[in-house]
Simulated scan of single mutants.
Amino acid sequence: MTEHTPRRIYGADHDDSDPYATTPGHDVELVGGPLDGQLLDVTALTPRSAYGPGGRADYEPRPGCATRWDWSGDVPW
Rank of each mutant, 00 (worst) to 15 (best):
M1D: 08
M1N: 08
T2I: 14
T2K: 10
E3K: 14
T5V: 13
T5N: 13
P6I: 03
P6F: 07
R7G: 00
R7I: 06
R7L: 08
R8M: 08
R8F: 05
R8N: 04
R8I: 07
I9V: 15
I9R: 08
I9S: 06
I9K: 01
I9D: 07
Y10R: 09
Y10K: 10
G11C: 02
G11E: 02
A12D: 06
A12Y: 05
A12G: 03
D13A: 14
H14P: 08
H14R: 14
H14E: 15
H14T: 08
H14K: 14
D15E: 11
D15A: 11
D16V: 04
D16C: 11
D16F: 06
S17H: 10
S17E: 12
D18K: 08
D18R: 08
D18I: 07
D18Q: 07
P19H: 00
P19T: 06
P19A: 02
P19L: 01
Y20F: 14
Y20V: 00
T22P: 04
T23H: 14
P24Y: 05
G25S: 10
G25E: 06
H26P: 00
D27N: 15
D27I: 11
E29F: 11
E29A: 06
E29W: 10
L30N: 04
L30D: 06
V31D: 05
V31M: 01
V31W: 03
V31G: 00
V31K: 06
G33Y: 02
G33T: 02
G33D: 05
G33E: 07
P34S: 08
P34Q: 07
L35E: 09
L35T: 01
G37W: 12
G37D: 10
Q38C: 13
Q38F: 01
Q38S: 14
Q38K: 09
L39V: 04
L39H: 11
L40Y: 09
D41N: 14
V42T: 15
V42I: 15
V42P: 03
T43E: 07
T43S: 13
A44E: 13
A44L: 12
L45A: 09
L45M: 09
L45R: 06
T46C: 02
P47A: 01
P47E: 04
S49W: 02
S49K: 01
S49H: 05
A50L: 09
Y51T: 04
G52I: 00
P53W: 08
R56Y: 15
A57Y: 12
E60V: 15
E60M: 13
E60K: 15
P61N: 05
P61K: 01
P61E: 01
P61M: 00
P61R: 00
P63K: 07
G64H: 10
G64A: 10
C65W: 08
C65K: 12
A66F: 02
A66D: 11
T67C: 04
T67P: 00
T67F: 01
T67D: 08
R68D: 12
W69L: 06
W69A: 02
W69Y: 03
D70W: 13
D70A: 12
W71Y: 14
W71G: 00
G73L: 03
G73K: 04
D74F: 12
D74M: 08
V75W: 06
V75N: 12
V75A: 08
P76K: 03
P76L: 01
W77D: 15
